[in-house]
């Protein structure tokens, strides 16, 4: 198999918060992370709260202050893009957030939520309507959703809307920031299926950020494990989960209970 082209390359990224006030040490959220996301593949980022995994995603999206390092997307440097360049990038780089409640403006109808990225990209409203109908199909939501408000939908349905918004302009990379973490188990399964189906159909790449080892193993081709702003281990998904090399990864795996009483109790007895 030929190695696919690298779509996103992050080199030695540093993100600091609160450095503006003198005399106080800035909080380093991301401390020199380097990752690569190949075209059409999924890179999983797994870590606990405060590990910097979400900040990494937000920095790539231009939502966190970058103190050092470089980000290139399809060969272009996007570390500190001009506003115009950032807006142009929005057709290729998209996001699905964790909380399907606060990621949709409660005052806007589903139609205007989905039209937003299209109209911002210069599409006419009538073209946008055609596209939106296709998007609803893609995420399997009923046609009559358009005139309704986010609060009329369940968590899983809202997450489908957020996915449709992200897919509106056929992006090449979608950052999924804990995209399934707020969902119930059975809903989560359906949303994961949807994301995998979309990837198969469109060849989109995912940067899949989560704290859930099972989810990241299921979704990803490769995994990086992060702790305290640094990458502690990286490798093929199956390998990292079945044969962890680093102490922290081992600890993380051991801490995550297996949903099978026989296996879980055997592991506990062994520990």
């Amino acid at each position: 198999m030929t190695r696919p082209e690298i779509l996103l390359q992050v080199t030695d990224l540093r993100v600091e918060f609160g450095s503006r006030r003198w005399g106080k040490k800035p909080f380093v959220a991301v401390d020199g992370m380097s990752i690569e996301v190949p075209q059409g593949r999924t890179l999983g980022v797994v870590g606990e709260s405060g590990s910097g995994k979400s900040t990494l995603g937000r920095a790539i999206l231009g939502l966190a202050p970058i103190a050092g390092g470089t980000i290139t997307f399809d060969g272009r440097d996007i570390t500190r893009p001009m506003p115009r360049q950032r807006r142009a990038l929005s057709s290729e780089l998209q996001v699905v957030f964790q909380d399907p409640y606060s990621s949709l403006n409660p005052a806007l109808t589903i139609e205007s939520i989905l039209a937003e990225p299209l109209v911002a990209g210069g599409m006419s409203m009538s073209d946008a309507r055609t596209r939106i109908a296709g998007l609803l199909d893609l995420v399997a939501l009923p046609k009559d959703s358009l005139s309704r408000l986010p609060r009329e939908f369940s968590g899983g349905q809202r997450q489908r809307i957020a996915i449709a918004r992200a897919m509106a302009r056929d992006p090449r990379l979608v950052v999924c920031d804990e995209a399934t973490s707020a969902l119930d188990l059975s809903t989560q399964a359906r949303v994961i299926d949807l994301l995998l189906d979309i990837q198969e159909q469109t060849g989109v790449s995912y940067l899949f950020i989560t704290h859930d080892l099972d989810v990241v193993r299921h979704m990803s081709d490769e995994i990086v494990v992060v702790n305290r702003g640094r990458i502690v281990e990286r490798g093929a998904a199956e390998r990292v989960v079945t044969d962890p090399q680093e102490e922290y990864t081992k600890r993380l795996l051991a801490a995550s209970p297996i949903p099978d009483p026989v296996a879980q109790r055997a592991r506990r007895a062994a520990a």
């Binding site: 369940s154 809903t187 399964a189 299926d193 099972d214 193993r217 299921h218 199956e238 297996i258 949903p259």
Partner: peptide, 26 residues
Amino acid sequence: STLSGSEPRSRVGDRAPAGSASETPA
């Protein structure tokens, strides 16, 4: 619906009996 020990990138929904847990609105 649990992903523990699942075949990576398989469709989870296919394994669970379909229909019984359709997503109901909040």
